[in-house]
Computed example of a mutant assay.
Amino acid sequence: MIWLDCVGLANIGLIEEIGRIFHLHTLALEDVVNTGQRSKADFFDEHAFFVLSMIDDARTSRYEQISFFFGDKFVVTFQEREGDPFEPVRQRIRTSNPSRLRNRKADYLAYALIDAVVDSYFPIVDATGDKVDAIEDELLAAPRKQHISQLHGLRRATSLLKRTIMPLRDALTTLIRSDAPFITAETKVYFNDTLDHAIRLAETVESQRETMIGLIEMQLSLSQSRTNEIIGVLTIVSAIFIPLTFLAGIWGMNFDPASSPWNMPELLWPYGYPAALGFMAFVAISLVLFFRWRKWL
């Protein structure tokens, strides 16, 4: 049994030569070089073709397409760039102890590689969940404007992850239900475990996406509530000062009380100024008590 891992898709001639050596179907080879394929599984006379997207850089969540060809005694993988989650599989192959990778056929090696790709999504999904939980705690404590941009960024990343994982479930289901002679019933049991992982990933991503949508709505509601609270306070302050401004405007008119007894007679009172201030304070306090009675405060 042989595993041939090809890194880089620029040398079309070499890819065609590899296809001739392993009798790979030309249509499948076209899908190898045309990146951006939807996850799928195709079956030919002597081999199967499986394509999916993988994360080759966990720090930046960079995606790339990886293609698998496997038959009875070979596995050929094509990836766009260096960097993959296959090191645990390579370590198991290097060991001198008996292992299932050495004793079983190529379909089990293909399962191990595909399962490594699927499992590589879990750290990304878990990290996203931790970020969402942290933002939720901050929102409940002290909502800020940058939370909206953070949530939108995470939601876009989660939507991309969802579009990547959802077709993977159908592709794995196709592998499990196939009757190809080079996929044994025992290996299908392992593929079924990988399918369970993919389903769990899809459910977790969908749950995170719904949580983020809810947090965005909560942030908008909190912002609206805060705005309404500020507007309510300003309205009450304005309502208190409107009658006081009215009184100050009346007493600020320049009518001479010496010309007529009806012209601002309170200007001649010895306690006119304290009386005016006292009346204005009475009006303000009365309005505050009225607002509290109506439960507007």
Rank of each mutant, 00 (worst) to 15 (best):
E229A: 09
L234W: 01
I240L: 15
I242D: 06
N228C: 08
W251F: 15
S221C: 01
A248I: 07
T194P: 06
S260Y: 02
P257Y: 08
Q224P: 00
A248R: 03
G214L: 07
M253F: 01
D196Y: 03
S207L: 05
S225I: 00
L220C: 06
A202D: 11
W262V: 00
H197R: 13
T211F: 10
T211A: 13
L215Y: 05
M218Y: 07
S260T: 10
A248K: 06
I213Y: 10
E217T: 13
I216H: 06
N263E: 02
D193E: 09
G232R: 13
A258C: 00
M253V: 13
A198V: 15
L222R: 13
L215V: 08
Q208L: 15
A239L: 13
E229V: 00
L220T: 14
V233R: 04
W251D: 00
N254G: 05
L215W: 05
T235A: 15
M212T: 11
E217V: 02
N228P: 05
E210C: 06
V205R: 07
P265V: 01
E217W: 04
S260D: 11
S259M: 07
S221R: 06
I242F: 13
I231C: 05
L234R: 00
I230E: 00
T235G: 10
F246C: 01
R226V: 03
P261L: 06
F241L: 12
D196L: 08
L215S: 09
S223L: 12
Q208R: 04
P265A: 02
H197F: 12
I216N: 08
I250S: 08
A258Y: 07
M264T: 11
M253T: 08
S223M: 13
G232E: 09
I240Y: 05
T204L: 11
T194E: 05
S259T: 14
